[in-house]
Design a protein around this nucleic acid. Structure first.
Lengths: 191, 191
DNA sequence: ACAACTATACCGTCTAGCCGGTACAGTCGA
DNA sequence: TCGACTGTACCGGCTAGACGGTATAGTTGT
């Protein structure tokens, strides 16, 4: 029974979002292995049957998360472009864990990509390409833009690896400012 | 089956190492989930009983891999320090996937770390700390050393994400050279 | 004789996915 | 206005198979 609406373009329920939140959280905190259907359902305070009502399979859950990540990243690209302190400042400062929705979704997506999910890898690559092109527009040298992206990626990896208690807080607001100043030296002195 | 060559010039490929190689390979190619005891044994052309003869548990397998990674990384730290073209040049050039034993072991370790294995996270952090201190010795500014490490991490993440068919080969030898030149601008003008 | 295996059977647990059922809010024709 | 019916949202029990691990008897090269 329950022949499902032909598509699921907009079930738009709060439960659906809670499930995605829970999935994200589990991926971030415990990696791919701990993000099982059972634990996602439990974390969202929904039964497993309830989860499978909203997402017919684990693949569908992954697709849902990736779609959300993609939407968030598109918004972010605009934020970078129009940031008052400039694109580079904004990109670098948001490359450490801020706990923002995009941040969590991005890390969750990375976990999936490390698990070799090709869809996750593709989405992540597209997001990176988008960021790179914004930086390229701001800095008029492709090599410099590339280097800045690499630093941004490095920061991500670092805070992702460090995260959780151990290791001193290496990326303070002050050290970020110093880093951004340093990046200034990469910019061609012309114009 | 498969009557092994009775004599090798040296006992250079003992089963234990083949098991570690297989474990590494599976982690790199298929992520944590695909590196099961059964598949590791199969990939090393050893029975499951044979695997458990050498490594009494999966934890022991992980420890074995991490020990190998640590040994390889210690050697590498010396290579960086004494590299003819200088530490920075060496570090950056070996930050893209080269297929070296360290490379493979490092990626395998990362997969374990993404799976939130605390031992893997610790080993990876130690390796990074070691690299950073070598760069700090070479470049006499901590902030600059930090930035260089970030670029190195970024390169690693990039080539890890890119890997496998899709995406054009973005890190050619020539582009690496340009990147290294660019990094030169980060160095303080003193000394 | 002994180490280094192979082969196979088995166990408990976890995991993805399936299915029957429930509760309830609407809709609609008589 | 009432009863039949529909769709949505969800529950919870179940199953097949994967997984880590155990056990044990047999084989092979030195």
């Amino acid at each position: 029974m329950a022949p499902m609406s032909k598509n699921a373009p907009a079930p738009s329920a709060p439960t659906r979002d809670r499930l995605l939140d829970a999935f994200e959280e589990l991926l971030v905190e415990g990696g791919e292995r701990s993000a099982t259907l059972d634990s996602v359902a439990a974390a969202a305070a929904v039964s497993k049957g309830g989860l499978l009502y909203h997402f017919a399979s684990k693949d569908a859950l992954v697709d849902g998360l990736l779609a959300r990540l993609d939407a968030l990243a598109r918004e972010d690209a605009d934020n970078i472009r129009t940031a008052p302190a400039g694109p580079v400042d904004y990109l670098i400062r948001t490359s450490v864990h801020t706990g923002s929705p995009l941040d969590r979704a991005y890390i969750a997506g990375s976990r999936l990509a490390q698990g070799r999910d090709p869809r996750a890898m593709q989405v992540l690559n597209e997001i990176r390409r988008r960021w790179l092109s914004v930086i390229e527009d701001a800095v008029h040298d492709p090599d410099t833009a590339q280097a800045i992206m690499l630093i941004s990626d490095g920061l991500y990896v670092n805070s992702s690896l460090a995260a959780h208690e151990l290791t001193p807080p290496s990326h303070t607001d002050e050290s970020m400012t110093r880093l951004i100043t340093l990046i200034g030296r990469l910019l061609p002195r012309s114009t």
